[in-house]
Amino acid sequence: MASLSFNLISRQEFERLALEEELPIYAYPFWLETAGGEGCFRYATLTKGNELVALCPLYHPLKEVWILPPCCQHGGLYFAKAYRSASLSPLLFKDRRQAMELLLEQQKSIRYAHISLSSDTLDALPFYWDGFSLKVRYNYMLDLKNEEDPFENKVNRLVRRKVKESESRQCKVIFDIPLETIAPFLHDFYKKRRIAPVFCETILRCATVAIDRGNGLTAGLLSSSGEYLAVYFIALASGVGYSMATATKEDLPFANTALLYKTLIELRSRGIHTFDFEGSMLQGVEPVFRSLGGEQNLFIEMQKGSPSLFDRLRLRWHYQKLSKF
């Protein structure tokens, strides 16, 4: 019986396999390297003979540190399609466990790790046994392809009221607006909420590259006078849309919900079958995602060790070196 092996592969080969396996956008080298910087990644596969078991985009911005880049919800380990089922055969389950153990063996020199697994991988016991602390995280996902029960049937009255208010004010939604229109809006919005500037700069860099590749969509809600009331950037990969960045004018509670509702309809018309709401644990945001018909999913966040003060300073310097938008 063939044993599992860990194999370093090229960036190009990894991207080809990520496309073939329909992995989340956080597994694509173009997104990872734009967010975290080139030269900080190892791309690897875990295989059993000639069979692909898992893909591993490993981010090491500092020596002996294994984390996720900014603007990545999860990463580090993605199983191939055959290994994602919740009801695996005993043999496939054993292979998946061995794949985790092999990955941990390759990462044994790591003194600090902080990553998350995707919702396809809820069995994180090998990490727990290796000394990682585990924490449950939540997000919401929406099925856009269900023709018999479309998401419009699931939205609550509050959403319908906000959409109707937008229409009564003669607002309209514009798609594929220039990123230069969104950028100052996002900078101002995040600054007022005291969100670290590195996040806004990172998401705008990622948005630039994603849109150039056809992996992104921008949207804006215009007032009757032509003023933007809300803007949105959605990343796209393998038929999934990811809610990455949004900003809204103050004191306009209807604007963001109305824009999101219309954007979901547009995404479906463009062949997107699933929407990942991201940021679904924020107390003021979670009810909105739930009211649009999103279904709660959980994923596992894991940490081992702690970063030193010097690590924190070097990481800050590393992200500041990355080009600004």
Rank of each mutant, 00 (worst) to 15 (best):
P307I: 04
I110D: 02
H187E: 05
A86D: 14
A80Y: 02
P197V: 03
Y83I: 09
K164S: 13
Q106G: 13
K154S: 13
A207H: 10
N7A: 08
V285K: 09
P69T: 03
K48H: 14
F325R: 08
K162D: 15
R97S: 07
D123P: 03
I265T: 12
P287C: 11
I9V: 15
N139C: 15
Y26L: 09
N156R: 00
V288W: 09
R312S: 12
N256H: 14
E105N: 05
W66D: 10
N146S: 06
T218G: 12
E20K: 14
L222I: 01
Y319D: 08
C71D: 02
K249I: 04
H187S: 07
L4V: 00
K48D: 02
F325K: 12
W129M: 04
I195T: 04
F93W: 11
S133F: 00
F132D: 03
L158P: 05
N215I: 06
S280R: 09
I300G: 11
E13L: 08
K63V: 03
G76K: 02
L52I: 03
L229S: 11
D176T: 03
E64A: 05
R270K: 14
A237R: 06
Q296S: 13
R111C: 14
R213W: 09
L313D: 01
L221Y: 09
